[in-house]
């Protein structure tokens, strides 16, 4: 798989990211009861080894929530919080005094999985409205570990057909709390054709 897309394809995917992330940001704001700032989504076609540097390097401790998305345009969603950010978020979610969460225990793990559910669900709802395609999120799974290790399962899926991966990334930041996270929509290798077809954009 070489780089088969034009400027137009990038713009379409950016719009996909924008629409999904806008709705997800609203859901996150309601959940946390505070304003969420959202970066303009970026669409990246990155060599495998460069992906973890987006998250602060391959050895950076992160909490990653992964959901597979069942669809005619299947994808994987990965929500990543740097570990210290995940702990701050858990303080807010679980009503603990700020700074009291230091590890991800069982309750924290379910809370993070639920965050993944809510973000993915709202993202996919608007994506579905936009494209007319159906997206069904599967049960989320959580890993708290080195960024490289959290990512490589997703990258392995692309490894069979490519040396690079397509990422639609959005960063969220909770205003005043200094909590930020990365949201990745990773269309599976054969999903792009279905997305572009649904939007009436030609794609070989």
């Amino acid at each position: 798989m070489t780089e088969p897309w034009s400027e137009l394809h990038y713009d379409v995917l950016k719009e996909v990211g924008n629409i999904g992330a806008g709705n997800a940001a609203t859901a996150l704001a309601q959940l946390l009861g505070q304003q969420i700032n959202m970066q303009v989504p970026s669409v990246m076609w990155l060599p495998f080894d460069d992906v973890s540097s987006r998250l602060g390097g391959p050895e950076k401790a992160v909490a990653g929530i992964l959901l597979n998305v069942d669809s005619t345009a299947p994808a994987t969603i990965l929500v990543v919080f740097p570990l210290e950010q995940a702990c701050l978020l858990l303080d807010v979610l679980l009503g603990r005094p700020q700074g009291s969460t230091v590890t991800v225990d069982e309750i924290s793990a379910s809370a993070l999985q639920e965050i993944g559910n809510i973000l993915a669900g709202s993202y996919l709802t608007s994506l579905s409205n936009f494209t007319g395609l159906t997206f069904v999120p599967m049960v989320p799974a959580l890993a708290v570990d080195m960024a490289g290790a959290v990512l490589d399962y997703i990258l392995a899926e692309f490894g069979q057909v490519a040396d690079q991966v397509l990422l639609i990334e959005t960063e969220f930041e909770a205003a005043g709390k200094d909590i930020y996270s990365y949201f990745f929509l990773v269309p599976k290798p054969d999903a792009l054709k279905a997305i572009f077809a649904a939007l009436g954009v030609g794609f070989e």
Partner: peptide, 24 residues
């Protein structure tokens, strides 16, 4: 050594690779 990469070296160089998950 990066992901999906390899290297050989002679003593006393240290070879490292970071953040192996499902990779080996």
């Amino acid at each position: 050594v990066g992901m999906a990469d390899l290297a050989a070296a002679v003593s006393p160089i240290i070879l490292t690779t970071i953040g192996l998950g499902s990779c080996v």
